[in-house]
């Protein structure tokens, strides 16, 4: 059952996004949905359907032209750049298609980078938990390896741990397995799914992979900037 907007941890109401230019481009139009705490939501759609634009708005990297977005009850529609930076640091974790780990830092240091951004005290607080997570994802022996010494799958696992470093409420993932072969993609997805479930974190994942999307709790399909469908993943699997 979909959560009501008022009780949800993430609420998007009639959000629109128009990119200015000689011919203004409308990327999103009247998008509304709500996500409950701990829910794993997949956003699918063809290229240009507005998936990444929506993720940018949820990640406070861009601002909506219309509508409102609430994260954990905070209206994040019109934040100053400083407020957006603070909230991103405190409430959000990002996973991208490419890991973009810093080559100068070890796996553990990369994973703790968001804590380092928040201050050295935060690093000390989160390090024990991060060591446990490294153990959990099978990278305990590679804490001090540099990114180039890790395989593609291992790099992406470090990127997932980096997204969890600050214990964020929301994980925003943009094609997190898009750069991996199918075996690695399934493994990484399962890892992400299990860890976020155990930690009761809310995940919004943009993907074009319908197989992976079907493993989420819920799938929102975008088409030309509008929500074409919003249903449980089980229903999508059933339909396909």
């Amino acid at each position: 059952m979909k959560p009501a907007l008022s009780s949800s941890t993430l609420a998007v109401e009639r959000v629109g996004k128009v990119y200015p230019g000689e011919v203004p481009t409308r990327a999103l139009n009247g998008v509304s949905f709500a996500v409950a705490p701990g829910e794993f939501v997949a956003i699918v759609g063809a290229s240009g359907s507005g998936k990444t634009s929506l993720l940018n708005l949820l990640g406070l990297l861009d601002s909506a032209t219309e509508g409102t977005i609430h994260l954990n009850g905070v209206d994040v529609t019109n934040l100053t750049p400083g407020e957006a930076v603070r909230l991103r640091r405190d409430m959000l974790g990002f996973i991208f298609q490419f890991h973009y780990l810093l080559p100068e830092f070890s796996a553990l240091e990369n994973a703790l980078m968001p804590c380092r951004l928040a201050g050295e005290g935060q690093v000390a607080r989160q390090e024990p938990g991060m060591l446990a997570l490294f153990d959990r994802v099978g990278l305990a022996g590679k804490l001090n390896k540099r990114p180039h010494q890790l395989s593609g799958g291992e790099q992406q696992r470090v990127a997932i741990l980096r997204a969890l470093a600050n214990d964020p409420l929301f994980i925003l993932a943009d094609e997190p397995t898009g750069n991996l072969d199918s075996a690695n993609a399934n493994e990484i997805f399962t890892l992400l799914r299990n860890i976020t479930r155990e930690m009761e974190r809310t995940v919004i994942m943009v993907t074009h992979d319908h197989e992976l999307a079907a493993k989420a709790d819920r799938v929102i399909t975008l088409r030309d900037g509008r929500i074409e469908s919003d249903r449980p993943a089980s229903a999508l699997a059933h339909c396909s």
Binding site: V85, R88, F94, F96, Y100
Partner: peptide, 16 residues
């Protein structure tokens, strides 16, 4: 360029 962008997405301020 990319690492800087990712650091900013993670919450690094312009000042940092």
């Amino acid at each position: 360029y990319r690492e800087i962008g990712i650091l900013k997405a993670m919450g690094a301020s312009n000042g940092q």
